[in-house]
Design a protein around this nucleic acid. Structure first.
Lengths: 206, 206
DNA sequence: GTCTATAACCTGATAGAC
DNA sequence: GTCTATCAGGTTATAGAC
């Protein structure tokens, strides 16, 4: 029985996993360019050289984390949109609830992923070629059936906007003292039921 | 008559202004941390030393650009929200039209400003303390009159979300080949009239 | 596997000639 | 004002001892 892989206890992770966890935190907090490998090593409680021993370079480590985070932010959306046999309303409710829960636990995930995708344009371009998959999804079909007069992407955009954007703009709202943390979380809880209601009302408006 | 300040002709800007313009482009495209002063100098067609001659450091130059960009992104919103004597609908239409026009010309403005505010938390925190100003604005009062049961910030959040977020997520949508440039611009044009309609329908939904 | 020490490189900023 | 050359400091990555 080696000293690694005792996957339950709090501080007893393998060194590799300690580094990854530190990288997750530092990268998402400061972004790739502003992160120094020393920060990650310090946060992980290990030496700098170990980082290069396990992962060959800063960029490779970042790449691993980035794929994880993209999966975390976008991975859950596709299965829901593709699921046949559920109503449009149900899909919307499920997506909003899913995102609100995940974003409350990871508030800076969207800003991190979206800005890093912009900063490394082609590096992550073809990672998920889900364009066609989405275009022929059950969700899009249902939207088109309800509103043939409006491009279905508008509604998907609205759903994502109203759900994700608050977490992106939150730093500003807090900076100008428009909300505090408690206030913000309360609002996000309210939005879990409000957003599906609003989407529904948009679909009805003629 | 010195050789500077002939403010009309295309390439005849003062050196200082050439550097600022280059900084605007490079900073907004790559962010503060990923930008090298050499990039800016090259983009401006001047020498690196000149950058430090006119602006004392990378950080000071960035600070100037950042204030400009924050003003550009948020400065227009407050006057509209405060204006008395116009209907709620009119304010919404005006805001959406204003943003759509400005963002079409500067698509990467929102992602830049929002991520840099996060990266420099306190540096730009107290720059615009418009929290109180907003809370007592005509706009908020009108929202409260229409829907005393829902916090007015929800509607402001929705307005900003549906307007700004598409420009933030656009790089992703293009990467997964869900839209191309032409398609995206067409959608944004449609949203100029759709968003006010949707906001109106949200206000009516009970 | 983990550490210390250091190499190799890059970046912001300045000195000094013109 | 503008340039070339260079410094000082910091950063990634590796060599080599344990």
């Amino acid at each position: 029985m080696g000293k690694k892989r005792s996957s339950g206890s709090p501080d007893d992770l393998s060194t590799q996993e300690k580094i990854k966890e530190a990288a997750r935190q530092v990268f998402t907090r400061k972004g790739y360019a502003a992160t120094r490998t020393r920060d990650i090593a310090e946060e992980a409680g290990i030496n700098l050289a170990l980082l290069n021993y396990y992962f060959r370079s800063k960029e490779r480590l970042f790449h691993e984390i980035m794929l994880e985070k993209m999966q975390q932010l976008f991975g859950h959306i596709v299965p829901v949109l593709l699921t046949p046999g559920t109503t449009l309303e149900h899909k919307v409710e499920q997506l909003v609830a899913l995102y609100m829960e995940m974003l409350t636990a990871n508030p800076d995930l969207p800003l991190f992923v979206l800005s890093e995708i912009r900063n490394h344009p082609d590096q992550f371009a073809s990672t998920f070629k889900v364009g066609d998959l989405l275009r022929h999804s059950d969700f899009i079909r249902q939207l088109q059936a309800r509103r043939p007069d409006i491009h279905p992407l508008h509604f998907l955009m609205n759903l994502m906007s109203m759900t994700l954007f608050p977490f992106i703009v939150m730093p500003v709202f807090k900076a100008i003292e428009l909300v505090d943390d408690a206030h913000f979380h309360a609002m996000m809880q309210e939005r879990k039921t409000l957003i599906p209601m609003w989407i529904e009302s948009m679909l009805k408006t003629r």
